[in-house]
Simulated assay, not measured.
Amino acid sequence: MTDDAPEPGRDAPDHSQGPGVHHRHAVPEGGASRADRFLADVIGTMSRSRVKALMEAGCVLLDGTPLREPAQTLRAGSIVDLIEPPSAPARPAGEEIPLPILYEDRDLIVLDKPAGLVAHPAPGNETGTLVNALIAHCGDSLEGIGGERRPGIVHRLDKDTSGLMVVAKTPLAHQALSDAFAARDIDRAYLALAWGAITPTSGEFDGPIGRDPRDRKRMTVVKSGGKTALTRYRVLRISHAATSLIECRLATGRTHQIRVHLSQAGHPLLGDPVYLRRIPAAARALPEPARAAALDFPRQALHAARLGFVHPRTGKPLLFETAPPADFRTLESAISDGIGTDC
C-alpha cells in the first residue's frame, strides 16, 4: 500500500479538489459486491440513490477513471474517489441572459426558448438556466411563485428542444396555468423531423411510459407500472422516403413523450442523443450532402411550435405560434431539396 492511500474502508476527507468534500476509499481485501453499496456503507451519511446520482454526474472515480455504473464490482486495493459538490444556494441567482419574449403582462410571460437553454437549475446545470434569466428580468416579484428552485415554471421543455413556453409571474397565474396543464386544457403542437416514411400519415402513438430499467436516463414504453401516454400526429412532408416532417399534439405530457413514442415506433427523431443509438437504415436513401446534414445534426429535431391557453385573469384565449429556429429550418431544407412530398 502506498503512503498516500487511505486505510481500507476508511474515509479520508480532502479539500484539495476545490469546493465540496472529497472522499477517498481503498477497497478492502475481498473486494465489494457493488460500487454504490460500498460507497454508501463506508461514507455512512449518503444514500445509494445519492451515490448513483453523483456517479451519473461524473463525481465518482475508480482508480482515476470515471465510474458511472452503480452495480460494478470493485476489486480489492482499488481506490475510489467521490467528490461531493457543494450545496447549491436554495434560491437561484439572477443572470443577465437574453430572453426572446413574445408577450408579457402583469401575470405571465410567453417566450420562444432557444435550444440549449435548461428550464431550471438541476445537478450539472446550476446556472445559466431560464430561471436565472427570469429572476434577473423580473426581480424579486418572482419570489415564492411556485417554489424557490423553479419560480414561475409551470411546464418545461427539454434542454435541446426549442419553442414556446409560458411562465407565471403571479400566484394567480401559477395556479391557473398549473391546473390547465394538469387537465390537458392547453393547445400544444410540436414540429419534429423523424427518420423514415411514417405510415399512415396521421394517427396516434399510444403506450404507457416509464423509466427504462436498463438505463435510468432513458424513458421507454413499458408493459406495467408506466403512466398513460397518447401522442397524436400528422405527417406534413416526406422526403426521399427517408425522413418525415410531422406535427405532434400531446393528449398527455410525459417526460420525453414524443421522443419515446417515435423511437418505439421505429422513427426516432433526427439528432436525438438519447433515443437514436445507431445510423438508421432510412439514411441510405438520402443523397449527399443531405445525409451528412441529417446524421450530424447535434440535437433532437423538435420544436414547440404552438401554445394556446386561457388567460388566468382576463379569461380571454391566447394563441402563439413560432417557426422552428434556423438550424431546424436549414436541416429541413437540406433534406427536402425540393424533392419531398407534401402529405
Rank of each mutant, 00 (worst) to 15 (best):
L99D: 01
P123C: 04
A26F: 06
V42G: 03
H23N: 09
D41T: 15
A122Y: 04
L99R: 07
I101H: 07
L82W: 01
P89R: 13
G116Y: 08
A40I: 01
L117Y: 08
H23I: 03
P123D: 09
P100M: 08
R75N: 14
K52C: 12
P66C: 11
G77D: 00
S49I: 12
K113F: 09
R106K: 14
A122K: 06
P121K: 05
R106G: 14
S87Y: 10
T65R: 15
S47I: 03
G44A: 03
A40W: 02
R34T: 01
K113A: 09
D105W: 01
G116T: 08
E29M: 13
G31I: 07
A26P: 08
A40Q: 04
L99I: 06
C59T: 04
A93R: 14
I97M: 08
A115I: 08
L67G: 07
P28L: 05
R75Y: 11
S49N: 14
L117I: 05
A122W: 06
E96T: 12
A40P: 10
L99C: 04
A26R: 15
R34Y: 00
F38H: 02
L99E: 07
P92W: 00
R48I: 02
R48D: 01
P66K: 05
R106S: 15
P114Q: 12
R91K: 13
A53E: 12
